[in-house]
């Protein structure tokens, strides 16, 4: 009786879990090279292999790891490095706010685990799933499946990049993949005049103030960019 009951409860949950994995798989086409390039880059700028892998496990946020590794390579002060990671990852507060209503009835331990897995890619497929029809009581299994798929892929692909990293010479200019990755993330996100103006203002100020000490030009450029965006948005 007990076994039968738990079978009935577990089976849909298991389906949800596997559906989450399957929904996440196509995204791995982008994640695998991204993870490998991160590993290669981290090693090429002088981050120790164990620290580079630890960043994937502890920070677990690709673009911020890219920048952070780059800043380690430039021997930027730790507080600036930390600030930069914090700013780049601020968008996760938006994801957190957006998905929070669906997670309220879960036990706290589930919230702690799912928050750790709340990446761009897992959020993207899970929020769509939450907004569709279905049994909301088991949809956290879908989130778990997609999140763990991304986590595993990210750890393995960064490990592969770290392993290859030492054999890649500096003349390959692989540090340029950072700029290219950011172009790939920024350009499609620019959908209106306000975000275009904000990005251009930030970029130009960052160039103008590049030689300020402690990379403080980055902070000034970000604040000016956001201000320009808000002003342009207010006008339209």
């Amino acid at each position: 009786m007990h076994a039968n009951k738990s079978y009935q409860v577990l089976h849909p949950a298991r389906n949800e879990f596997f559906s989450g994995i399957i929904a996440e798989l196509p995204l791995m086409v982008g994640v695998i090279p991204f993870g490998m390039i991160y590993g290669i880059l981290a090693i090429s700028v002088g981050v120790p292999a164990n620290a580079a892998q630890a960043m994937s496990a502890i920070i677990f946020a690709g673009s911020s790891q890219f920048v952070s590794a780059q800043l380690f390579g430039l021997s930027v002060p730790a507080i600036i490095n930390l600030f930069t990671v914090g700013v780049i990852n601020l968008r996760h507060a938006l994801y957190s706010a957006s998905i929070a209503p669906y997670l309220q009835k879960l036990p706290t331990r589930w919230k702690w685990v799912l928050a750790y897995l709340l990446t761009d890619e897992a959020y993207a497929v899970s929020i769509i799933h939450y907004q569709q029809e279905g049994d909301d009581r088991i949809k956290h299994w879908f989130f778990l499946g997609s999140g763990l798929t991304l986590w595993t892929t990210w750890q393995l692909s960064t490990a592969a990049g770290i392993y290859l990293g030492a054999s890649v010479p500096a003349s390959w200019s692989l540090d340029f993949t950072l700029a290219l990755t950011f172009i790939a993330l920024v350009v499609p996100a620019i959908k209106d005049r306000a975000s275009l103006g904000a990005a251009l203002a930030a970029g130009l100020v960052a160039v103008a103030l590049f030689n300020l000490p402690l990379k403080s030009g980055l902070l000034a450029a970000s604040l000016i960019g956001i201000l320009v965006g808000l002003l342009l948005e207010g006008k339209s």
């Binding site: 700013v87 780049i88 601020l90 340029f176 920024v186 620019i190 990005a199 030009g217």
Partner: peptide, 24 residues
């Protein structure tokens, strides 16, 4: 206001990082 500002954070920070890589 913070919610409105957050939307601009990713493009602004990422552009401020890659522009100098291209122009300097």
């Amino acid at each position: 206001l913070m919610e409105r500002a957050l939307r601009f954070v990713p493009p602004v920070v990422l552009t401020a990082i890659f522009f100098p890589e291209l122009l300097l």
